[in-house]
Amino acid sequence: MNFRVDDGCLIDESGARLDERHWRWNPKVVADCDDRIEHLPQLAPLDAVQYVYGRPTARRLPIGVIGPNEPTKDMCEAAEKLGRALAKLNVPILCGGRGGVMEAASRGAYEEGGQILGFLRGDDWRDANDYVTFPLATGIGHARNAIIAQSSLALVAVGGQYGTHSEAAFGLNFGKQVFGLCQAPDIDGVQHLETVESAINALVPILLHLR
């Protein structure tokens, strides 16, 4: 599916317009606009995400990135690449705000000028890694895992230990899509993928609220 831009609004092939404040598609209301729409430049799905999430009127819903505090080198590389890719699309990330996979994803996003929300277990925002742009000290310990899962539009698990298992399980329980990279938790409902690129492509319909 390709998209177009009309008067600043993202529109799909049927002429429906995306309301990026409330994230819903409004059906086409002008019946005779098809000829005009056909002559508007097309946007591929990734370009559509980058465009709409870059609009000043858009409410930027974050993607949760979860993973272990002591990851392997492959996990760190994948998390950093994931953070970088999401930032290039103007999509904020939400994570636990500390080290390991969380820090790697934060670093990748930060170096691309992205926004990183860190939901910390403790009550001191200074515990966040150096790349978090919005450190949020919850003071509720591991219960913050449920907040991360609920607050994310979707979740990507890069590897995983017990905390990652709980976040993924919470996400699935809340009806969120959970994707897995690099030996992510083997839980029914987690969709395991091979590459960061495949994870980004899987996130596109969710980011554009196509389902």
Rank of each mutant, 00 (worst) to 15 (best):
G163I: 05
I147T: 10
G97Y: 02
G114Y: 14
A157G: 05
V132D: 08
V91T: 01
S152R: 00
L155M: 03
E111V: 14
G83R: 10
K81F: 07
N90L: 06
Y131M: 03
G108F: 05
D127W: 07
S151E: 13
I148Q: 02
I147N: 03
P135V: 14
P135C: 12
Y131C: 04
L155D: 02
G108E: 05
V156G: 04
D123C: 03
G122H: 05
G99H: 10
S152K: 02
L117M: 07
L94T: 04
A78Y: 12
A78R: 08
M102R: 08
G97M: 01
L82N: 13
G139W: 06
A137H: 07
H165Q: 12
G96N: 03
E111Q: 14
D74H: 11
N129L: 01
A85G: 05
V156T: 09
G100F: 04
P135G: 08
L155W: 06
G108T: 13
E80I: 02
S166K: 14
S166V: 15
A105E: 03
V158F: 12
A78H: 13
K88I: 14
W125P: 13
A105V: 15
L94A: 01
A104V: 15
L136W: 08
E112P: 01
N90M: 08
N145V: 00
A149D: 03
R107K: 15
L117D: 02
D74G: 10
A137E: 06
D124Y: 03
V158C: 01
R126C: 00
G100I: 04
R107W: 04
G122R: 13
D74P: 13
K81W: 07
R84E: 12
T133V: 11
Y162K: 03
M102P: 14
G163R: 05
A157R: 00
A137N: 07
Q115S: 09
S166N: 14
A154D: 04
L120D: 09
S152I: 15
T164V: 15
